[in-house]
Design a protein around this nucleic acid. Structure first.
Length: 237
DNA sequence: AACAACAGCAACCGCTTTAGG
DNA sequence: GCCTAAAGCGGTTGCTGTTGT
């Protein structure tokens, strides 16, 4: 017998039916979340509490976003995964309406192989590159402490017209410029645009968002050069 | 057209952490 | 402080639909 849809012991397992979903939604709407073992019993479901909780949290909750992960969300996932590793629930807290399970699945299907493959291939190369870059950028930082916000607002009229205004606005405001402490490298990303040091290579940018394989990353550069050595670049994954 | 390989994802399992008595 | 049940978490499995041969 297969694993799904069969009765084992006293609990049902496998995919949820429409009727089961209805029972669970009705019960939770009436009595609220929590106490999942009694939910299972009282809602008339032949499911254990754990299964009910999972179904609710990952699928039935009304505040879940049902649409595809957006490029913006994808970038957040990449950035946070670079920081937190596989701490999916921590990452999920920064993405309202997304579950840890969803993010985990997304990461595994879209990025895991690529990162694993390229990281073994290029590990030493990457380490050497990072070290070199850290050194040169520390030097660069010492030479010029740059107020990114001021630079960008002074150069607003240089942003090409096909870059959506709202994207650039988000880049400007809320201190959305990140200062990478480790490398001293400034960058900012939103919806497919990045503000990066003009001289930085595509590989540098990839490193900063946690990708290690050039094939995964297509940067059309530069969209625009601004003063003080920064450029706006457009990219696609 | 048939089969294999792959991708996507829901749901499971086992372990850890938290809350309540 | 200890014990137990519930909740939370991350890794894994296997079904289903799609793509490649």
């Amino acid at each position: 017998m297969g694993r799904w849809g069969i009765i084992e012991e006293e609990w049902r397992k496998g995919p949820w039916t429409v009727e089961e979903d209805k029972l669970l939604i009705e019960y939770v709407n009436l009595h609220g979340e929590g106490r999942w073992n009694s939910v299972a019993r009282l809602a008339g479901l032949k499911r254990n509490g754990k299964s009910c909780r999972l179904r609710w949290v990952n699928y039935l909750r009304p505040d879940l976003k049902r649409e595809q992960i957006t490029p913006y969300e994808e970038r957040i996932i990449l950035e946070l995964h670079a920081i937190w590793g596989n701490r999916w629930s921590t990452i999920a807290r920064s993405l309202p309406g997304r579950t840890d399970n969803e993010i985990k699945n997304y990461w595994r299907t879209h990025f895991k192989k690529k990162v694993k493959k390229s990281s073994t291939d290029n590990f030493e190369k990457t380490k050497a590159r990072l070290l070199k870059r850290q050194q040169s950028q520390q030097k660069q930082l010492l030479n010029s402490q740059i107020d990114m916000k001021r630079v960008m607002s002074q150069n607003e009229n240089k942003v090409p017209s096909h870059v959506p205004k709202q994207d650039m606005a988000i880049l400007y405001q809320n201190n959305s410029f990140h200062e990478q402490e480790q490398s001293g490298f400034f960058y900012s990303m939103n919806n497919g645009y990045a503000i990066v040091p003009e001289a930085s290579s595509n590989e540098d940018i990839m490193w900063d968002i946690g990708l290690w394989n050039l094939d995964d990353f297509n940067v059309n550069l530069p969209v625009s050069a601004v003063e003080s050595g920064f450029a706006i670049k457009e990219f696609k994954i």
